[in-house]
Design a protein around this nucleic acid. Sequence first.
DNA 1: CATGAGGAACTTA
DNA 2: TAAGTTCCTCATG
Length: 257
Amino acid sequence: MEPFKWFAILSWGTFISLFITLDQSEADGLEQMQTMVLGEVLKDVDTACKLLNISPDPLGWSSLQVQKWLLWTEHMYCLPRVSMLFQGLSGQDLCSLSEAQFRQHSAQFGDMLYAHLDVWRSGTWKNDVTTNQVYFSNLKMFNDLLFPYSCVYEGPVFFADVVCGYHNQPIHLWQFLRELLLRPHNYSHCIRWLNKEMGIFKIEDSAHVARLWGMRKNRPAMNYDKLSRSIRQYYKKGIIRKPEESRRLVYQFMHPI
DNA sequence: CATGAGGAACTTA
DNA sequence: TAAGTTCCTCATG
């Protein structure tokens, strides 16, 4: 697990203070760290609201406030001139855009901006920023933290990802595995292609992949035993199979795109 | 000892 | 009802 990835949307100041805190208590569980990170995210959102004099709910933003938010995000995360690409959109317009449409506006930073907006949009939590008690009404935000924005998609975006609008749908295991495989920079240590054209991949760290899947689905008890059972369900559905010469932890997508 | 196949009952969206 | 999840037995190297 690479905790640093989770800090992608934090400012440097909070990053450093969190890092110091974590360093002092390395026995802290993953869960506590998540709570801390999310607590910091909430504070950042809160700060931005006061600074920009905008509401925390993007749906209520005027086009001017959208520009404010974009400029702020641009500034905070060093995204060159992205605000120019979203001229004249109200908050409602912005929220109605899919991730694919964000990417159309900005190939380089579209998914990053989308993720940032989603943090705001899914912010209907019961929060108490002062005591750092964070409850989620929407695990989507948590998912986004697991999939860092700072990286660009490597390789093509798959048809199903774009067309099915899966971000509003419950994610499928095979899609999740593809998401990991699409980000070798982040996840190749735990899952990677052996032959991308043939759709053959290997799970290098079964426990880690299972843990990620468990987080994504909010199933803390997930393990490779259960994950692999789910993969095996794909055999008769024609989604994933074992390659010709079966090898441990190696599977193959039956319809690689 | 971790992986692999698959039955069966159960849960969750 | 689909898509897993949980638990299980038995097989393999």
